[in-house]
């Protein structure tokens, strides 16, 4: 290496190199990505809302909770099927967080992992690896609901 770099301590050299690399590396185009994510994510949610209205119209006897569950499962099934046909990954490459954040992204994460590990068998392949990507979502979901429940309970003691 050049004398200048040779004379630096490892830490200083790494810092200098990291700055140089971050300067020269191409960056993700944040604003266009965010715009696409906003539009696509919003569109998926609108489809979900449409399903809620549709199911409400078809099944007037159902409670809003049941209707919501039905709409969510429909989106999950659609995303899972699209993943199986190799369409959702292309859609995700285009839409980014717009395809990742809604419940369809969760479905894609589970299905993609399940498919990937199918060759290692049903139990140790598909089932054991199914939540490899989506697992943290479940962990945080459960942990956060416990936390919120706890706060709710503490507040209810005083109100």
């Amino acid at each position: 290496m050049s004398q200048k770099i040779d004379q630096l301590s490892v830490k200083a050299r790494n810092k200098m190199y990291a700055d140089y690399v971050s300067n020269i590396s191409p960056k993700s185009r944040m604003w266009p990505s965010m715009l696409i994510a906003f539009v696509v994510g919003g569109a998926i949610c609108m489809v979900g809302q449409g399903l809620v209205l549709l199911f409400g119209y078809w099944f007037p006897g159902y409670t809003p909770d049941q209707i919501g569950g039905l709409a969510a499962s429909t989106l999950i099934i659609i995303a899972s099927i699209l993943t199986g046909f190799g369409i959702y990954d292309k859609f995700g490459t285009f839409a980014g967080a717009g395809a990742l954040v809604p419940i369809t992204g969760f479905s894609n994460g589970v299905t993609a992992a399940a498919m990937e590990h199918r060759k290692e068998g049903i139990v140790f392949g598909t089932c054991a690896n199914m939540f490899k990507i989506a697992g943290p979502v479940i962990v945080f979901g459960v942990a956060m609901s416990m936390l919120v429940g706890l706060i709710y309970w503490v507040i209810s003691l005083f109100v």
Partner: peptide
């Protein structure tokens, strides 16, 4: 991809680097 990154069908974006 399987060993180092994500399942093939996962709809994620690759960074430009």
């Amino acid at each position: 991809e399987r060993q180092y990154r994500y399942p093939l069908e996962l709809g994620n974006q690759r960074p430009p680097v």
